[in-house]
């Protein structure tokens, strides 16, 4: 139980770090440009990501991941990733602010993942669309409306 609590706190801190990251990148975009901020963040992120990959190389090789050839498309996650930093930098510095950016981003994520699952896109297991799937997104939409309603 104790260790579960410790990891729970770590997960919450992880989420907090993501919010901090978006805030910092949008600050950088004010001093440069949205595209420049994304470029710098990806460049510096590559360095640390390579370091982490290099350090965990041995342990990762022994755990057996799926073998076989990877569809080329899955290598391109960095493309939408590049747009993520650009778009967030624009919206955080707008009337929506950081909480609005995070909340609306969640709606987009949920809607997109429901769609991808319903169509069985990108190797995801095809799941028949069920109206109950709309319940969670309704909560998220309502919460987001509450957050951005304060900006009008």
């Amino acid at each position: 139980m104790k260790s579960i609590n410790r990891y729970s706190i770590l997960a919450i801190i992880g989420g907090g770090l993501l919010a901090l990251m978006i805030n910092i990148n949008s600050q950088l975009s004010l001093e440069t440009s949205a595209m420049n901020a994304s470029w710098i963040a990806h460049g510096l992120g590559s360095l640390l990501a390579f370091g982490l990959f290099y350090m965990t190389k041995e342990t990762m090789d022994s755990s057996s991941p799926i073998h076989g050839s990877v569809p080329k498309l899955y290598y391109l996650g960095g493309l939408p990733g590049a747009f993520t930093v650009i778009l967030a930098s624009i919206t955080v510095n707008s009337a929506i602010g950081l909480s609005g950016t995070l909340a609306l981003g969640l709606i987009g994520q949920l809607a997109c993942s429901i769609l991808c699952e319903a169509l069985g896109l990108f190797g995801l297991e095809k799941k028949k669309f069920n109206f109950i799937d709309l319940v969670p997104i309704t909560f998220v939409v309502f919460g987001s409306i509450l957050i951005i309603s304060q900006r009008y």
């Binding site: 939408p80 990733g81 993520t84 778009l87 967030a88 981003g105 709606i107 987009g108 997109c112 993942s113």
Partner: peptide
């Protein structure tokens, strides 16, 4: 942005 995050 959320759509981009999901696809990424």
């Amino acid at each position: 942005n959320g759509v981009c995050i999901a696809i990424s």
